[in-house]
Design a protein around this nucleic acid. Structure first.
Lengths: 223, 223, 223, 223
DNA sequence: GATGAATGAGAGTTCATTCAT
DNA sequence: GATGAATGAACTCTCATTCAT
């Protein structure tokens, strides 16, 4: 029984049955998603059991199946819900003006690193990377609602500085990808491997500062 | 029942019972490890079953338990075996002389990216990231025999160019980490998310070239 | 892995979840207990398998675990159920009046011996004696609901005759214990060892008569 | 697979292969028996595993099967060995002269109770009672070499006092059985149920004294 | 004769899923 | 729509036994 087969069950997570949007129904759905998120992020897809989820969500096992076709569909809904809510919003919110480009880059890197080190996004990354081969659609979801949106935000931010003339690049998207990659050195990388690492604000700031410098060295206007 | 408790069963994978080093025994062990590697990398820790492993390895279930105390111990042995064999050797082998620093960096990046895109190391990365919280010792193993050794290799390589005066850095280790991070953009990143991506040699070379340039921009001797 | 650890799972078998007292639930529980009693008494604790029990009870293996936490807990419930139902009731019921003391003692011995020779109580004794070291709480259950209650009945019966002046003893409890011990000669003893023995009514009566005589010799009023 | 079927494998434990009495072979056999006795008495027949036994005996599993056909045969040999060695010898040894009959009876009861309370005989009793239905021949072995011999010893002892005129009975065997039954009150009975009980020498002496008195009341020459 | 690796049946237990209430 | 008991397949792991060395 391959999990790949189950993908079709949540291939189109958007067109939910519109008859289901009674308030009570949505509340239950929310309740289930919260419980399922907790369990899936703790234990992974295979490691999580529907019983645990029902218990954590405070509903019966049968109710799970009234709202989601099966475990895979519930998992898909969980990933989409998490992708929407965790990464992009945290990055998108502010505009980072009134600084030099390097200061702005450092600030942005700091914020990005901080988010990546939080338990939620960390676990989400783990489960996405781990289950991507078994749920191809899932990574797409994550990219569209999560990482991709963050990348878009950063690309726009780079475009802003290109317009201002502080940054010179023929490929702002690639520059954004490099920026994000540079943020995933040392702290994030080691945290993902569960290696001992000091994630104090000072350390975060230090790495962010180096990201800012490197970013300017690569893309800054040659003086 | 937490998998964390089982960690001690493979905490010290080095001091194997020396009485067991008969050729036949080692061959069977090798056979089991090969089967287990295939299944674990395909299905993850929880997704893999001892029956599948036994079947793939061509031995009976009981034999698995004659050679490894339990599933967790087998998993630990698999990770160590893979860590030793997959990453570091592929990077360490050659010396990259007789080129400019940037050419050398590009060549190294190309090789590193190529390795990271192969199915084996890719799956190994997935499973390490996914299971690290449940098997703390495992990530340590991976770091010591795998990623960490690669990092060491690169740090040494940087040291070589520092001596030659082509590279200037106060923190060669961090420079190496940044180099590795830059290699994990675009192709590797997207491949990890199972997004559609063109991993042709041309694409690899293109990314590697950009890594080389970025690396020189960051760490090259100011002219 | 000691069975002793599992004792807590049925340490307090009385305070069952009161939400579970639906009629259907109790019926299934009864059904399971009946099957489990049969198998445990036939095969002992270790010799019995949950599959056999499920089969005999006419339910699936999963159902067993919906009603009892594990094999040990089921075993505990079985022992309690048997202890409550088999021994004491058979002894307690009548009042044995309108006879001489010796006649009454003989009658009581006859009844007690008869019960002890029945397959059920015999097997219960076997399993209690055998598993007592592995399930300390179990013997306590057996004593409280089974043997201890029978002993109490007999002590009361002796008290009755002490009041009437036919029996003289400073320790009615010990007298009752001696009475019970005397009943476990020859027939019961040999039956427990599965030695060939004639357990006809005549033989039972003969032993019972000797118990009556011995009991009067020990405790009767000196003429 | 019923254990009853396995009985024939040790139905005739006496006619051992005479070719096997080399000293080394007997020593190994002794070694195995010692290990097996320890494990069987601790864990019961089903609860004991051949691996545990091999380990405790300090031999390999294969060696077990070189000396005994299977688990059941080994068990049979263990029971016979224990039956021969534990009970009867402890009782038979002395002659208990130069006392009154009641003193002698008390002394004998004391010795018998003491033996029954020891861990070895206690566990032997447990396993015999428990496994008798599954190994009919086993109880016979136990009776012939163990309990039966003890009973014979006591019958002889009674015969001695009958000759002296202190005891009057038409059935010395039954008198001996009653004597033994009386010894199994209170301490022994409760110990077998693993109930808390004070088995100090004082308590043993107290019960033995009451056995002596009861025995004389039942069988003593009427004055 | 002694070994211990190999076996496969079967142990206890958990699981996703169904369905009558 | 919510429930949770029932299911049976599949899980990890252990067992008595065999047999090549």
């Amino acid at each position: 029984m391959d999990r790949l087969n189950k993908n079709d069950t949540f291939a189109s997570p958007d067109n939910e049955d519109p008859a289901r949007d009674s308030a009570a129904c949505n509340a239950k759905r929310r309740q289930i998603l919260d419980g399922a998120e907790a369990i899936f992020l703790e234990s992974g897809y295979e490691g999580a059991s529907m019983s645990q989820i029902a218990c954590r969500a405070g509903v019966s096992k049968g109710t799970l199946y009234n709202h989601f076709e099966n475990k895979a569909a519930l998992f898909g809904a969980v990933i989409e819900d998490l992708s929407r809510g965790k990464l992009a919003p945290a990055i998108c919110q502010s505009h980072l003006t009134a600084m030099t480009c390097e200061e702005s880059a450092t600030k942005l890197a700091e914020r990005f690193i901080t988010v990546l080190l939080q338990p939620g996004p960390l676990r989400l990354y783990r489960i996405i990377v781990s289950e991507a081969p078994h749920f191809p659609v899932l990574a797409d979801t994550f990219w569209r609602h999560g990482f991709g949106r963050t990348l878009k935000t950063m690309t726009d931010w780079i475009g802003h500085w290109v317009e201002r003339g502080d940054i010179v690049t023929d490929d702002p998207l690639f520059a954004a990808e490099q920026f994000m990659a540079l943020c995933q050195t040392r702290l994030v990388q080691r945290k993902r491997f569960e290696l001992p690492v000091d994630c104090s604000e000072e350390q975060i700031h230090d790495v962010a500062r180096r990201v800012g410098k490197a970013f300017m060295a690569i893309n800054g206007r040659p003086s």
